[in-house]
Simulated assay, not measured.
Amino acid sequence: MPFKLLKPQVEAIVSDTTKTINERLLLVCQLLETHIDYYNWVGFYFANSDKKELHLGPYVGEPTDHTVIPFGKGICGQVAVSNENFVVPDVAAQDNYIACSITVKAEIVVPIFVNGKNVGQIDIDSNTPDPFTEKDERFLEFVCEKVSEIL
């Protein structure tokens, strides 16, 4: 499904105040994983700045042991420090990659900002080599912007 058709659905989910924030975040994960073929694991990590750790929030996909990630470790941990999107076309070529599953070939992580502060991120794994484009980045920035409005 094209990103432009998903945007209003993301907005509808995020603005549904009859659900908790975590319920809405899980629905966003389910929407993306269901409608974008190469999004095989979709989840949110949130920063605990005092401990310099990321904590796993709602997600869809294979279970992961990586429920807490130190800042700087792995792709997610690097985004917590850099405050910038990180697109990994081939996880096997990354030195500082935390393997979640042998099926994962690529990853994209986009930070979530609230009042200019990096409070978390959306993390997407793909079993397809090099699937992410600039359109994915722009769409996920949109998703993160909408999510930031409810955090």
Score class of each variant (00 low, 15 high):
residue 94 Q to H: 09
residue 100 C to F: 02
residue 85 N to D: 13
residue 91 V to P: 04
residue 109 V to I: 15
residue 89 P to W: 07
residue 109 V to A: 08
residue 103 T to I: 08
residue 112 I to K: 00
residue 87 V to A: 06
residue 99 A to F: 05
residue 112 I to Q: 01
residue 100 C to Q: 05
residue 91 V to E: 10
residue 96 N to V: 10
residue 103 T to R: 12
residue 104 V to S: 12
residue 107 E to W: 08
residue 85 N to Q: 09
residue 86 F to K: 15
residue 98 I to K: 05
residue 90 D to P: 02
residue 88 V to D: 01
residue 107 E to I: 06
residue 109 V to S: 07
residue 91 V to Q: 13
residue 85 N to V: 15
residue 84 E to D: 09
residue 109 V to Y: 07
residue 84 E to G: 00
residue 89 P to E: 06
residue 90 D to M: 09
residue 94 Q to S: 13
residue 102 I to H: 12
residue 88 V to L: 04
residue 100 C to T: 10
residue 101 S to K: 12
residue 90 D to G: 05
residue 108 I to F: 04
residue 108 I to D: 06
residue 98 I to D: 02
residue 109 V to M: 07
residue 104 V to N: 12
residue 97 Y to D: 03
residue 106 A to I: 10
residue 105 K to N: 05
residue 105 K to P: 02
residue 86 F to D: 06
residue 106 A to V: 09
residue 107 E to D: 09
residue 106 A to E: 06
residue 91 V to M: 11
residue 87 V to L: 13
residue 92 A to V: 03
residue 88 V to K: 01
residue 90 D to S: 13
residue 101 S to L: 12
residue 98 I to E: 02
residue 106 A to R: 11
residue 112 I to S: 00
residue 102 I to N: 15
residue 85 N to E: 11
residue 113 F to Y: 07
residue 104 V to Y: 10
residue 114 V to E: 00
residue 105 K to F: 01
residue 87 V to D: 07
residue 89 P to R: 07
residue 99 A to C: 12
residue 94 Q to T: 14
residue 96 N to L: 04
residue 114 V to T: 08
residue 102 I to Q: 12
residue 91 V to H: 12
residue 100 C to G: 13
residue 95 D to R: 15
residue 98 I to P: 05
residue 94 Q to C: 12
residue 95 D to A: 15
residue 84 E to I: 02
residue 83 N to T: 01
residue 88 V to T: 09
residue 83 N to P: 00
residue 99 A to Y: 10
residue 108 I to S: 06
residue 88 V to Q: 01
residue 92 A to T: 10
residue 97 Y to F: 14
residue 111 P to I: 07
residue 91 V to F: 11
residue 89 P to D: 07
residue 85 N to I: 14
residue 101 S to N: 15
residue 110 V to Q: 01
residue 109 V to D: 04
residue 87 V to G: 04
residue 110 V to R: 00
residue 88 V to P: 03
residue 104 V to K: 02
residue 108 I to G: 06
residue 89 P to H: 08
residue 96 N to D: 10
residue 85 N to A: 14
residue 97 Y to M: 02
residue 88 V to A: 03
residue 83 N to Y: 04
residue 111 P to G: 03
residue 101 S to C: 11
residue 89 P to I: 11
residue 84 E to A: 08
residue 86 F to T: 11
residue 98 I to C: 05
residue 101 S to F: 11
residue 114 V to P: 00
residue 107 E to T: 08
residue 90 D to R: 14
residue 88 V to M: 04
residue 99 A to P: 05
residue 97 Y to N: 07
residue 108 I to L: 09
residue 113 F to Q: 02
residue 90 D to L: 10
residue 113 F to G: 03
residue 86 F to Y: 13
residue 90 D to F: 14
residue 93 A to K: 14
residue 108 I to Q: 08
residue 114 V to C: 00
residue 104 V to M: 07
residue 106 A to M: 10
residue 97 Y to G: 04
residue 98 I to W: 08
residue 91 V to G: 08
residue 112 I to G: 00
residue 105 K to M: 07
residue 94 Q to K: 12
residue 101 S to P: 00
residue 95 D to G: 15
residue 90 D to T: 12
residue 104 V to L: 04
residue 105 K to E: 09
residue 99 A to N: 12
residue 106 A to F: 06
